[in-house]
Nucleic acid binder design. Structure first.
Lengths: 222, 222
DNA sequence: TGAATAGTGTCTTTCAGACAATATGCC
DNA sequence: GGCATATTGTCTGAAAGACACTATTCA
C-alpha cells in the first residue's frame, strides 16, 4: 500500500549521478566539490534534492545540466541507497543514476554554475563524501557487466565512429586489450551497427570506415 | 551533493514488495486488499512507509512479515518508481523489492494482521492500485532474466529438492518446457548444487536423488 | 508385469578465443 | 617505398540444443 493520510516524519530524497566518460584512454567520472556541510570541501557525486513536481529521471537530468553542463546523455537508474546513517545529519535516501557522455562533444568548463566540477580517472579517485565511493564501485560493476550484453557503449561515442574507436571504449572499460578480429566478428554479428558509407581521412595511413548505431535506444543483446 | 540544511518539502517514501512463489505449477504473487483511500478495496502490492530509523531492506522485511506473514525470504531491490502523479494525492516515491518464497514452507492464512492477503496467478491478475501493474511486469522481466544467469531460483525451493523439482520451477517461470537431459547437463556443469545423499521414496516409481544448493547466497553464473 | 517417474549419451551446430598476413592512403 | 593503421579468415575447443532409451520402485 503506497499511501495514506497519516503524516509520517519524512526522509529527504536526492538523486546522485555517476557521469562516466572516456578521455585519453581513461575512464573518468564527474565529481563536484561540496560547498556545504557536511563534508564541505570534499569531492562528491553531482546530485541534489528531488523537487516535488518532477520525476526521478527529470531530477537527474536537471542536476546533470546544472552541475555538469551536460544535456542529452544516456541515463539509467542504478540503485537506491537508504541506510539511515549514510548522511550524518538527516535521513537522506538517494536514488542513483548511471550516465554516459561522449567527452568530445561537450566541455565541462563552460558550465560552472555549481562551482568546481572536475573529471577524475576512476583509477585515481579522491576520498569521496558520504557513501559515494561505494556508489561509484557499484556503478562501475554495472557498467562493466552491461557493456558485454547491451549497446550501452553508444553513450560514450559520437554519432559516427570507427570500429577502432568502438573497440578502444570497450578496452578502457574492461581494462584489458581485445583481439581486433574477434571483436569485429562479434560486433558485426550482433547487427547493432551499420556503415555510414563515409571514411576517415587526412591521416598518413589507410582510412577507416565510419559506422553508426542502428538504434539509439538501449538494446539487450542475446 | 546529498544534503543541506534547507528544509525542502519532502515526498513520502514507501517500499512495495513483489513476493513470488510457485504453487500448482503456477507462478503466483502476494497481493493485499487496500483498507484506505486512495484505491480503497483494490488489490495492491504489500508495502508501506519507510520508517526513519530503518534501512530500505529492513523496511521491506518488516512489511513482508506484517502483511504476508513471511520471514527469511530471498529479497533484492528492484527499481524505484517516482513519477509525481503515481499517487493521485501525495507525492510518493516507492522503492520496490523482488522477494521469492518456497510456498511449501509457509502458510499465508496464519498471518492476517493486515487484513485480506491472497496469492494470485500472474496469468490472472486483478486490476491493481496505483502503478502496481507496471511494477509487477517489471519484476517479472527481471525474474525471467535472472533465473538464466544466477542461482536465484533457490528462493523458490526448500532446502532439499530433486532435479525434477528444480526443472519445474524453471519451466513455470520461463513459461515453456525444457529438455530434461540438457537441463541436467547444464545445471550440473555450473556446480551450484550437490547431492545430499538422500532419496525420495514412498511413491510407485523410481526414487529421485535429493540435492541442495552449495551456497545460499546469490551467485551470478558465468 | 505394468505404471510412473528417474536417469543417462551422442551428434550437430554455434560461439568464443587464439593466431598473422594483406590492403590502403599519405608523405 | 616507407609508415601507420585498417581490414580480413582459419582452426580449435566449449557450450547449447535436438533427440530416445534404460532403470527403479511400488502396486
Amino acid at each position: 500500500m503506497s499511501s495514506n493520510k497519516v503524516d509520517f516524519q519524512r526522509p529527504s530524497v536526492t538523486v546522485d549521478i555517476l557521469l562516466f566518460t572516456v578521455q585519453e584512454n581513461d575512464l573518468r567520472i564527474l565529481l563536484v566539490k561540496r560547498k556545504l556541510t557536511p563534508f564541505k570541501g570534499s569531492w562528491a557525486l553531482p546530485g541534489g534534492f528531488v523537487h516535488m513536481n518532477e520525476s526521478l529521471d527529470e531530477a537527474a537530468k536537471r542536476e546533470l545540466l546544472e552541475e555538469g553542463n551536460v544535456d542529452d546523455v544516456y541515463l539509467e537508474q542504478l540503485y537506491t541507497f537508504g541506510d539511515p546513517k549514510r548522511d550524518p545529519r538527516d535521513r537522506v535516501i538517494t536514488v542513483t543514476y548511471l550516465a554516459l557522455a561522449d567527452s568530445s562533444s561537450w566541455n565541462i568548463k563552460s558550465g560552472g554554475d555549481a562551482g568546481e566540477a572536475e573529471l577524475y580517472s576512476v583509477k585515481k579517485l579522491p576520498v569521496l563524501a558520504f557513501d559515494h565511493r561505494k556508489i561509484v564501485d557499484y556503478g562501475l560493476d554495472r557498467l562493466k557487466a552491461k557493456i558485454g550484453y547491451s549497446n550501452i557503449v553508444l553513450g560514450l561515442l559520437p554519432d559516427e565512429f570507427t570500429l577502432t574507436d568502438l573497440q578502444k571504449k570497450h578496452e578502457v572499460i574492461l581494462g584489458h586489450p581485445i583481439d581486433k578480429r574477434n571483436f569485429r566478428k562479434k560486433i558485426m554479428s550482433t547487427g547493432v551497427i551499420e556503415p555510414t558509407g563515409k571514411q576517415s581521412g587526412g591521416s598518413a595511413h589507410r582510412p577507416a570506415a565510419f559506422y553508426r548505431f542502428k538504434s539509439k535506444k538501449l538494446i539487450i543483446i542475446d
